[in-house]
């Protein structure tokens, strides 16, 4: 199936990393580029250090923020020294009193599961703890961190996806997004488990870069699904022109792509 119409570009916050927020010119230039290129959504893996920049960019451009939660790379790093509980408490202490109270109330019935080290409950409380910091950005979508997605996929842990989807839709009224690097396996698994309503984010590019288990399997899964897909790694780590990648994803019926920097409009027309 070929998609009609332009592909929506969603900005990866890593593209803003080099922005010097102390230099108003630099920030204004980035914001202006976001506005002129028509980018309306920003994907951001939660990091406390980047939070002020994200808030400022949102204030200036009105861009919608899609948080990627929980930041598993940072969490795993912290567990080495602080342990599983200590790393979670560090995140809890970053919350405002109100956010702590809300988190405690909404998870009061989960206390037993936490004490039993129930993995899914713990992972989603960790997600909610980080979400407590980003709720003021009024996200309309929440993306599950790919490490968690792919770990659960490998272990056939469908309950995590069900609980995440339920949490997003019923507790926060936001759309669940799942980021994966193994879309050729995730899409058939979601169908097998009967999990609907999530958007799936995964690498798609003509070179097959980061498309697992294989380019063929990913293409077949993409063509055979009704799940909404968003592409990443469209330019295969900068080894092909973005336009070539965008043309490719359109042949698979995809209509949105996450890119690492705002591109002038003429460069992204396939």
């Amino acid at each position: 199936m070929t998609a009609s119409g332009p592909v929506e570009l969603i900005l990866e916050a890593d593209g803003l990393r080099d922005t010097d927020k102390t230099q108003q010119d630099d920030l204004s230039r980035q914001c202006s580029l976001i506005t002129t290129t028509g980018i309306r959504r920003l994907v951001w893996t939660y990091e406390p250090g980047v939070e002020p920049l994200i808030r400022q960019v949102q204030r200036q451009t009105g861009i919608a923020v899609i948080p990627v939660l929980p930041n598993m790379a940072a969490y795993v790093r912290d567990t080495i020294e602080m342990g599983v509980v200590g790393a979670a408490l560090l995140r809890f202490r970053r919350l405002s009193f109100g956010a702590r109270f809300r988190l405690a109330i909404t998870n009061a019935t989960n206390a037993f599961r936490v004490l039993r080290r129930e993995f899914n409950t713990g992972a989603l409380i960790l997600l909610e703890t980080e979400l407590g910091r980003v709720l003021p950005l009024r996200p309309r979508e929440i993306m599950l961190h790919p490490t968690l997605t792919d770990f659960a996929l490998a272990l056939d842990n469908h309950r995590l996806f069900e609980q995440f989807t339920d949490l997003c839709q019923n507790r926060y009224g936001v759309r669940p997004w799942l980021k994966t690097h193994n879309v050729g396996l995730l899409l058939p698994a979601l169908s097998r488990w009967g999990i609907e309503g999530a958007t799936v984010v995964a690498p798609f590019n003509p070179k097959g870069y980061w498309m697992h288990p294989s380019k063929d399997a990913c293409e077949e899964a993409a063509r055979g699904t009704t799940i909404q897909l968003v592409a990443t790694e469209v330019d295969a780590d900068g080894t092909i022109p973005l336009a070539e990648g965008l043309a490719y994803i359109q042949t698979l019926g995809l209509r949105a792509a996450i890119v690492s920097r705002p591109e002038p409009l003429q460069d992204r027309t396939p």
Partner: peptide, 21 residues
């Protein structure tokens, strides 16, 4: 030579940034 130019077997990758493949 980018890594995407080097052929590989079909793989599962739990974390490409950390060399999951």
């Amino acid at each position: 030579i980018h890594e995407s130019d080097i052929p590989s077997k079909p793989t599962i990758d739990l974390n490409p940034d950390a060399g999951g493949e």
